[in-house]
């Protein structure tokens, strides 16, 4: 499907996106006609209680699942009906994922964990290693390359996970409750890292149920029952000078 305005082409565009799960005899509408555009350089927080469809939407955008109906356009290409191996290709080449539970592989070193997406993108080993070291440098962990995840603190693990998510120079960074398992100091650090990635032009889409965390985003999409309730822009509190109401975060 051709995009009408190529100059201001959104990274991802959902048009009347629907996802219906069948649970027993009942149909669950996890996404119920969502239309949304995500542009490059945006830091978007998807807010909503559990069951609101925010994770489902992130899975769709992350090529982990397919829509029941509607359209998804990724970097100008209609990807609504692509097969499993093509979706795997997008995950390896164009998507960066950060999870709440870090999800590092315990038996791989920090470097090997970061190299993982490049392995599946069939990048030559030497090049993969170079790029992984570069990504680790960006998250200030180049001194930990040979450590195992079990030897790192929670904040360091999340930074390794972030390095893994950006190592393949993705088109978008998807973060699923990235601060859920962190103390307030590391929450601030992680959010700062996401902001700086956004500053470099990488759009960041963060799923959260925490209003305070959402304040770091410059656009908030609130969801309820599989639909977009509100979609508004705000000034990221990252630029606040300390007068804003940051709750737990104001002292870190």
């Amino acid at each position: 499907m051709e995009n009408k305005d190529l100059s201001a082409r959104p990274v991802i565009e959902l048009i009347d996106a629907r996802k219906i799960y069948r649970m027993g005899d009942e149909d669950v509408r996890a996404l119920d006609g969502v239309s949304l555009k995500i542009n490059s350089g945006e830091f978007i927080a998807i807010l909503g209680p559990s069951g609101s469809g925010k994770s489902t939407m992130m899975h769709m955008m992350g090529f982990m699942d397919t829509l029941s109906s509607g359209t998804m356009i990724f970097e100008g290409t209609d990807v609504s009906h692509i097969g499993a191996s093509r979706r795997a290709w997008y995950r390896a080449h164009r998507i960066g994922f950060i999870f709440q539970a870090f999800n590092l592989l315990p038996r791989l070193t920090v470097l090997e964990n970061v190299m993982l997406p490049l392995t599946y993108a069939r990048t030559a080993r030497r090049e993969a290693e170079r790029r992984a070291r570069e990504a680790l440098e960006r998250v200030a962990l180049s001194h930990r390359v040979d450590h195992l995840p079990s030897q790192l603190s929670g904040g360091e693990r999340q930074r390794v996970a972030t390095a893994r998510a950006i190592v393949n120079s993705p088109g978008i960074l998807l973060a699923d409750e990235p601060t859920g398992n962190l103390d307030s100091k590391n929450v601030k650090r992680t959010l700062d890292l996401l902001c700086s990635l956004r500053d470099s032009g990488l759009p960041v889409l963060m799923v959260t149920h925490d209003l305070e965390v959402a304040k770091f985003a410059d656009r908030v999409v609130e969801m309820r029952d599989g639909q977009v309730l509100r979609d508004y822009r705000q000034q990221s509190c990252r630029h606040f000078t300390g007068t804003g109401n940051l709750g737990d975060l104001k002292n870190v």
Binding site: A84, S85, R91, A92, H93, F99, N103, L105, L116, Y120
Partner: peptide, 16 residues
């Protein structure tokens, strides 16, 4: 199972 999920999320195909 979780490891398999992570590998798939970062781009592993079913074949991999």
């Amino acid at each position: 199972i979780r490891e398999i999920g992570v590998r798939k999320a970062v781009g592993a195909t079913s074949g991999d």
